[in-house]
Design a protein around this nucleic acid. Structure first.
Lengths: 240, 240
DNA sequence: CGAGATTATGACAGTCACTGACAGTTGACA
DNA sequence: TGTCAACTGTCAGTGACTGTCATAATCTCG
């Protein structure tokens, strides 16, 4: 029930790009319907409280069919997250090589958020995705899954960073270390944002920026004294 | 089948400290037996491949009884991990107030590992615990659970750090940020150690130290320039 | 257009983690 | 020794998955 298959159906005769057959379109429609129904049910009545049977029933397919589209309940929750993540990785890849790694990560993140809305809207309403994110943060099972996925993303990003800098991830620890530190802070902001009231992307951006700014000062020797020294403050951000 | 209840039973008449009744001892014995059997089965045939029925059968109790001792399969896997973590938190609490936060965390970690063996050995053989840790790292479900638990630990540690520094976690982002960065790197080392060959605590210590040493350089502006400062070399543990 | 090859789907059976309810045992304690 | 409370086993039930097989819907090609 979203833009994708509508556009696809409409553009079928015209566009030279893609014109999937009826079968494909039907499948896509079923998948979208399942996804939409699942997220809607999860966010309204809770993840654990929603059974797969319910989701299947809402779309009027058998339970077995649900499992043909999604390996498990969890997977539906992260379908959109997947897109968001590749969007971010792509943004990292596009950063000019001269930027310092931490800086590149930061900018890539903020950049990718500029166009986040459109990416999400391709599949589901942004607002539903935001609710889903909060659901993830507040549901132990989902949070666990999310963290594991994040650690995989970390590895991928570390490789991208290593490539940028012409290093070997297995030889030089720095790519993984920056990414680990960066990700640690990102997860932190994700948690805080999820716990807060304001569910806008704008709010998330503000929280993130201010926390990233704290990496330098936080790692500094002495918190009481004003931080000195250049390398101490990775990327020279002292704010707050 | 370990030291705890043996000691308890033996010391029963003498020690003024504790002399649990028969009932208590029996319970403890059952729990230990279940824990031991579970870990042994998990590490030999795999977590997913081991059913709760098998574990219960190995100890000759009903499945229902297993679930009276452990809320779920997962929980058995983290029983020892729990102790290790509180041991670490305790170590952080004991660090002198004048140490810089990141430094205190690092020292607490290494300190706590000095006595890690004894702590673990109270419940199960260290070697079994090491195998368990590798199992966690290599089993998606368990890894996810582990990461979630770690994030809870993070929050706890952040509060300890905040207290040390006389700050409010909800006002000053720095406690959470250091801990986030630190934890990010720790998780990284955990992963690398788990993937490696050497399963000794010593090896883990080496990997950890060298990676922690890289936080500063990794966050620095420019990786191409030689980073100054001692923390550069990281004791040459670059392999895999 | 129609027959046969593909492929999605439904119906059914089965496993496994987990939970609630109830009854039978067993250690605790007067 | 007998009563009470805590443990435990048995049984039944739910919900997430998985394998299998028959059916029905597309697709392909003559």
């Amino acid at each position: 029930m979203r833009t994708r298959q509508q556009a696809a159906e409409a553009a079928e005769p015209a566009g030279a790009a893609a014109r999937p057959g009826l079968r494909e379109r039907k499948k896509q429609r079923t998948r979208d319907a399942l996804l939409h129904a699942a997220l809607e049910l999860f966010t309204t009545q809770g993840y654990e409280q929603t059974t797969v049977d319910e989701i299947a029933a809402a779309v009027d397919v058998s339970q077995r069919t649900f499992f043909r589209y999604f390996a498990n309940k969890e997977e539906t929750t992260f379908a959109v997250q997947d897109m968001v993540e590749s969007h971010f990785v792509a943004a990292v890849r596009e950063r000019p090589a001269h930027e310092a790694p931490l800086d590149a990560l930061r900018r890539a993140l903020l950049d990718s958020w500029d166009t986040l809305g459109e990416v999400i809207e391709e599949v589901i309403p942004v607002e539903l995705h935001m609710r889903t994110y909060q659901l993830i943060e507040s549901t132990p099972t989902l949070l666990a899954a999310h963290l594991r996925r994040s650690s995989e993303l970390e590895e991928e990003v570390a490789r991208v960073i290593a490539e940028r800098e012409g290093l070997d991830v297995d030889t030089d620890p720095r790519p993984r270390v920056v990414v680990a530190a960066f990700s640690g802070v990102m997860r932190l902001t994700g948690r805080l944002w999820g716990a807060g009231e304001d569910t806008s992307i704008e709010s998330m951006r503000r929280v993130t920026e201010s926390y990233l700014d704290q990496i330098g000062p936080a790692l500094a020797e002495d918190w009481n004294r004003r931080c000195r020294g250049p390398e101490r403050d990775g990327s020279g951000v002292h704010a707050l």
